[in-house]
Amino acid sequence: MSPNAPFEPLRCAVVGLGSIGRDHAAILDALPETELVVGCDLDPTRRAVLPAEVPFVTEADAVLDRDDVDAVWVCTPQHLHRDLTVAALERGLHVFSEKPIAHSLADADAMIRAAERCSEAVLVVGHTLRFHPDFVVAMEAVAAGQVGVPIQLSARWNTGDHEGTVISGRTTVPLEMAIHDVDILRQIAGEVRSVFAVASTISPCGPGPDAVAGTLEFESGAVASLDHSWIMPSTTGMFSDHRLAVFGDRGTVYVETRPTPAQIFGPDGPAFPNTAYRQANPLIPGGALATADRHFVRTVKHGAPWPLTLADARAALAIALAMDRSIVERRPVEMREIEGER
């Protein structure tokens, strides 16, 4: 669509109104460039998260069969992504799929093939750290050579038990949380050769595992450590603890999302980019999730490139699946083992 074409908001549907679907729905209802035309969830009580004027249905087909939907946000549990995404693409609808792209590599490949067949429709996967300004600055600094060759990396993301008590046993820490960071680490250091992960046997939130530690070995020779959980007691008032560090032969990049933003220590000395969000209009949502949603509108309407490819999303899924296998089998897992199961 030409940038000079008459303005028409992208007509959007959200399928799956759990925590992330609820957030997308609120954003799409508030943005001037989108119109939330319908929400869907199997649980009829989720109707309450939608504005009163937005229709609510409990069957996905009731969304896909409407003639006033341009794009679908797939925010369902991971094992439902494939069928819904393929059905939407085959109807010519654009799809924003929440991460992970799917529950298995076979499902991910089916979705990618559907996107290739239905070339008029856009399929993207919402890895929100690709839109977080601190992580964008960190990746740009590495790409610009400010740290030299990445040698040792680390990523930590611990979130509150308000999430863990809901999803423990329904998904895994690698698929829900670590996948964000392994996508960024792979973007920085390249393809992963092998994975080793262990899980705590203490599970305060549910069936568990609720806390995972791991390592990645990259084809480049770099290594990374991972530290992820959803166990932080919400009663403490601290809901997120997120850090990224990249150590190279010329410098270092830090991202610490609690008290300080991105920090770069390169050959030209330290730098502290001002990446803080400024929300000038309180009626327009800000943050990485809203940035991703707005970028998707530009991708659909104007062809703006999405910051990660479907192959990137698939690779992050493969690494998370390797972490899950390593936890179960208590051994390092080569990535070629995961790829050999397709």
Rank of each mutant, 00 (worst) to 15 (best):
T85K: 07
Q78Y: 15
A71F: 07
R91K: 15
L84N: 09
R91M: 08
A88Y: 07
L89D: 03
L93Q: 05
V72C: 11
R82L: 09
R82P: 12
G92S: 08
E98D: 13
P100N: 02
C75R: 00
H94D: 15
H81A: 09
V72D: 11
L93H: 11
H94F: 04
C75G: 13
H79Q: 14
L84I: 05
L80D: 10
L84V: 02
H81R: 09
E90K: 14
L80T: 02
P77S: 01
R91N: 09
H79S: 14
A71R: 05
L84D: 07
A102W: 04
R91P: 15
H81V: 00
I101P: 05
H94K: 05
A102P: 14
V95H: 03
C75D: 06
A102V: 03
H79C: 12
A71Q: 09
A87E: 03
L84Q: 08
I101F: 03
K99T: 01
I101K: 05
L84W: 05
A71T: 08
G92K: 10
I101N: 03
V95F: 05
T76W: 01
K99Q: 06
A87I: 01
A71G: 11
E98R: 01
K99N: 06
A88F: 10
C75F: 02
H81G: 12
A71L: 12
D83N: 12
K99R: 11
G92H: 08
V86I: 14
V74R: 00
P77G: 00
T85F: 07
V74P: 03
G92Y: 04
I101M: 13
Q78E: 15
T85N: 10
I101W: 02
E90P: 13
Q78D: 15
A87H: 05
V72L: 14
R91Y: 08
S97D: 14
V95N: 07
L80H: 09
E98I: 01
A88M: 12
V86H: 10
